[in-house]
Computed example of a mutant assay.
Amino acid sequence: MAEDSVQRFVIGDVEVLRIVEWQGPFVPAPDLVPGVAPELWKEYEEQLAPDHWEPGSDRAVAAMQTWVLRSGGRTVLVDTGVGRGRERPGNPLFHRREGDLPGRLERAGVLPEDVDVVVNTHIHADHVGWNTRDAGGEWVPTFPGARYLLPAADDAHFGPDGGYGGGVRVDDRLVYEDSVAPVHRAGLAERWEREHRIDEHLTLEAAPGHTPGSSVLRVASRGERAVFVGDLLHNPVQVLHPECSSCFCLDPRQAARSRRRVLERAADQQELVIPAHFSGAGAVEVRRVGDRFSLGRWAA
């Protein structure tokens, strides 16, 4: 999928738009999912290359993207990417990046004032960046009429009460101060825990491990289902090896438990699985094979 194109499909009465800001080779594959032996990437080459693994460089392929859901007359954004002009010294890919999510949204027919709800599946730099924009040296909400739904556990962990993620990464303080705190000050933030129903079709559920408040968004409409899994999955190799968490997971064991639970339900209920960073088609069906899982059909 080209970065300047828009993928559209429907889940019952819910329209879905995929807005890609960037996609391409990311980090070395063995570094991204350390539990997967290097030779297994080669074994799965037919399923992973070229959309999810680049054999020549041995790098995982990923995308940074936002999903737009039109449900019940409202417009919902799922994650907001890296943002523009952010100080991210711990990550060269995100540092002072000059992205243009608002421009891409506008070309897809979505203006900032059209957005009713912003879902941050978790508070990481590449999921909250366009929560805000620079207005003359001050960070203000990009979507002024929206409710911003924040997992309470992440807001506590990455906010000042949690020492900005315990001070482990300098970027965590910067991310919170420029992309989350301004939303609180504007009175647009809504913290939730365990489960939160957005409307008759959309429900947020906790799926901790990647971060303390990592979450998934379930969609159910007219017998069709999907689940936006955020960073529970960074690469399809984790469907084949759900016990293997990414290098970015704060609690890899808990993330693996959440991943297996979500994949089991997706396979049993025929939910389309939509991760935050899958390149290629971006969404895939998952099937059971004994106590394991396989990749089914990719989204059209």
Rank of each mutant, 00 (worst) to 15 (best):
D116V: 01
D116H: 12
V117S: 06
V117D: 01
V117F: 04
V117M: 06
V117I: 12
V117T: 09
V118T: 02
V119E: 06
V119W: 00
N120R: 08
N120H: 11
T121G: 11
H122R: 15
I123E: 03
I123Q: 14
H124E: 14
A125Y: 06
A125D: 12
D126P: 01
D126I: 12
D126T: 14
H127E: 12
V128H: 03
G129Y: 02
W130G: 00
W130F: 11
N131C: 04
N131E: 01
T132Y: 01
T132Q: 05
T132D: 04
R133N: 04
D134T: 11
D134S: 10
A135V: 11
A135Y: 06
G136A: 12
G136N: 13
G136V: 06
G136Q: 09
G136S: 11
G137S: 09
E138D: 13
W139Q: 14
W139K: 15
V140N: 03
P141E: 08
T142A: 14
F143C: 04
F143I: 00
P144Q: 05
G145P: 11
G145H: 12
A146M: 03
A146C: 07
A146D: 08
A146S: 05
R147D: 10
Y148T: 03
Y148M: 07
L150E: 02
P151A: 05
P151F: 06
A152M: 09
A153D: 14
D154Y: 11
D155G: 12
H157W: 15
H157F: 15
H157Q: 14
H157G: 09
F158V: 08
F158Q: 05
G159D: 03
G159Q: 08
G159Y: 05
P160C: 13
P160A: 15
D161F: 14
D161A: 15
D161M: 13
G163K: 03
G163F: 04
Y164M: 07
G166Y: 01
V168G: 07
V168Q: 15
R169D: 10
R169Y: 10
R169K: 14
V170S: 15
V170I: 14
V170K: 15
D171M: 00
D171A: 01
D172T: 15
D172L: 10
R173C: 08
V175F: 07
Y176I: 08
Y176P: 02
Y176M: 09
E177S: 10
S179G: 09
V180A: 02
V180D: 02
A181T: 02
V183N: 01
V183G: 00
H184Y: 15
H184M: 07
R185W: 02
R185F: 00
A186Y: 03
G187E: 00
G187I: 04
L188K: 04
L188S: 04
A189Q: 01
A189C: 08
A189K: 03
A189R: 06
E190G: 06
R191P: 05
W192P: 12
W192D: 11
W192V: 03
E193L: 11
R194N: 13
R194P: 04
H196A: 09
R197C: 01
I198E: 08
D199V: 02
D199G: 05
D199F: 07
E200C: 02
H201P: 07
H201G: 05
H201M: 03
L202C: 02
T203I: 08
L204G: 06
L204Y: 07
L204T: 09
E205A: 13
A206M: 13
A207E: 00
A207L: 09
P208D: 13
